[in-house]
Design a protein around this nucleic acid. Structure first.
Length: 285
DNA sequence: TGCCAGGCTTCAC
DNA sequence: GTGAAGCATGGC
């Protein structure tokens, strides 16, 4: 939806000068699905709903304006956008002889690995399987509008991500009507597992990468790839290296002798994200 | 029409 | 443990 026409008055805002922060690239990098461009001529402005909050962000070169209170920025968004990590330092560790990776980094600089809500990330990436990014966004939007909580800030309505309790209470037919296809049953079973504490999200947050991946894969509908996405895009285990169809094609084309995972131990996930984003946009390069 | 999309479960072996 | 079939849906 486009609320820019209404020009609502935003009371709170905080502007930061940030390096390695590209709003458009972050929004289009396929790690989050509720970040949308606000169609406003001559500005780079996006909205996002996360952690039950609605946020608008404006980018003017290195100046990033977050339309929220200073307190909310400190409590939520500073951490959400991983602002304590020096991406310059990580980018500099790449093998300069690796042409594909260097091109990917040059193309994708400004992407950051988000720290998203765990529950939302699990469901979002269950939906992502064998699905396209526009359709994933559409499915999640429907899910939120039908089963999330309607909220409003400065006259702007938005919907929170539905809770496990809410999703667990649904009939499978209600989920089927959200264009989720065969993923409906995965979502319903996962919601029930979380609601009944058969799967404890808080304990998962305390685990290391290896154990959290093993735990996530116990969920019905979560395999290696989805588990890695949750590890990377929510739990911030940046060793996780999700291999989907795109990354698999990259590995087969450019890394026939194997990707040097050991070299990038501790931050391989960031390299993966640059490569994924670059591959998505190769036709435009 | 057929192929593909940030794959997973099930089942045979 | 490995490999193949089947799976919903919509865009191209």
């Amino acid at each position: 939806m486009n609320y820019a026409m209404d020009k609502p008055i935003r009371k709170d805002m905080i502007t930061k000068k940030l390096q390695n922060f590209d709003l458009k690239k972050i929004a289009e990098s396929g790690q989050c699905f509720r970040m949308n461009k606000i169609e406003d001529l001559d500005t780079i402005k996006y909205s996002i709903v996360a952690f039950d909050k609605y946020l608008e962000i404006l980018q003017e070169n290195d100046n990033i304006t977050f339309f929220c209170s200073k307190e909310q920025f400190t409590e939520i968004w500073h951490n959400y956008f991983d602002l304590d990590t020096d991406y310059n330092e990580i980018n500099a560790l790449a093998d300069t002889k690796d042409n594909f990776l260097m091109n990917a980094i040059n193309f994708g600089t400004g992407i950051r690995i988000l720290k998203q809500d765990l529950w939302e990330t699990i469901i979002s990436f269950i939906i992502s399987q064998r699905n396209s990014i526009p359709r994933i966004k559409k499915c999640i939007e429907i899910l939120c509008e039908r089963f999330g909580e309607r909220k409003e800030i400065d006259g702007i309505p938005y919907y929170t991500f539905p809770t496990a309790k809410k999703l667990a209470s649904l009939q499978i037919e209600e989920l089927n009507q959200c264009s989720l296809g065969y993923r409906s049953k995965y979502i319903l079973e996962t919601a029930k597992a979380v609601l009944h504490k058969e799967f404890d999200l808080e304990i998962l947050k305390q685990m290391n990468y290896e154990n959290s991946k093993i735990e996530l894969m116990k969920l019905y509908g979560v395999g290696m790839k989805v588990a890695d996405c949750v590890c990377l895009f929510s739990l911030h285990h940046i060793d996780a290296f999700p291999i989907d169809t795109h990354v698999n094609q990259i590995l087969e084309t450019y890394y026939k002798d194997g990707f040097p995972f050991e070299r990038y131990s501790g931050y391989a996930g960031i390299m993966q994200q640059y490569m994924f984003y670059y591959k998505l946009n190769l036709a435009k390069v």
